[in-house]
Amino acid sequence: MFGYSMGDIGNIMIMQGFSGLSMFTVLLLMALGLAIIFGQMGVINMAHGEFMTIGAYTTVMLSKVAATYGFVNYYFLIAIVLAFILAFALGYFVEFIMIRHLYKRPLDTLLATWGLSLVMQQAFRSSFGAKEMSAELPEWMLGSFKPTPDIDIPINGVFVMVLALLVTAGVYIFMYRSRWGLRVRATVQNRVMAGAVGINTKKVDRVTFALGCGIAGVAGAAFTTIASTGPTTGTLYIVDSFMVVVFGGAASLMGTIASAFGIAQAQSILQFFMTSSMGKVTTLLVIVGILMMKPEGLFASKLRK
């Protein structure tokens, strides 16, 4: 097959699979935030990629500070928290001045948030310059370990994957095991009734939106370990993460994880055997094809509309 021996294919699969895993983590974190916002509130946030970029720039800037003051080894953990807080705060603010006026017009939210993404991109360009920047990784994240001589697994990939799993677990606990999550789900299912039993639905909306943005910020922090950050970084992932959310079936956490995994792996492995653009085209075509046959996504709960 393609002139490789079976052993080579195995190794390529594992290594491409692993590089797919880094993409999977970023996609998963992006899609988790989107899935919360879109699945729970029906709002399309086109500026989601820019919230990710905020997280990425936070990490890059903090790494520069860390390099001067000599705490490079553990700045990354602070960066994750800071990225979350900044993106959360901005998301909270955006919901307050913009999104909450548009809940009844979902298509208009899509357009307004696209306007917001333009403004944010230009703001990044004006404040950080058009050049791409990369974070200085702590020493323990560099390097790789080799289970066999032919397989090479980078440690930063493992780290962000653990991070993504932790965030996913956190989101799960928040949504399905906490009072807050209960309120969010109640608001989604029946807004009027939820209001009648004393849930402050407006506050629930605001926190849900901000939480989604905050997770995008964490995705940005994870992103800095695999690529460099520029003003338009967010646009790279936005369509992919929308595809993940729609493909997995909105409002389904398991579906989001499974489809993020599938899409990232398919792209990564196909990109090795075809050109990078054809790999992406094939993956997207398959997704669009499946969505045309099964528009509610792979893991949507059966609902009568």
């Binding site: 548009l102 208009d108 306007g115 917001l116 333009l118 403004v119 360009r125």
Partner: peptide, 16 residues
């Protein structure tokens, strides 16, 4: 530099 700010702002204003 101003154009993207203006375009984004215009879009948000018109839609809202």
């Amino acid at each position: 530099e101003l154009w993207l700010f203006l375009m984004g702002g215009l879009f948000i204003t018109v839609v809202m």
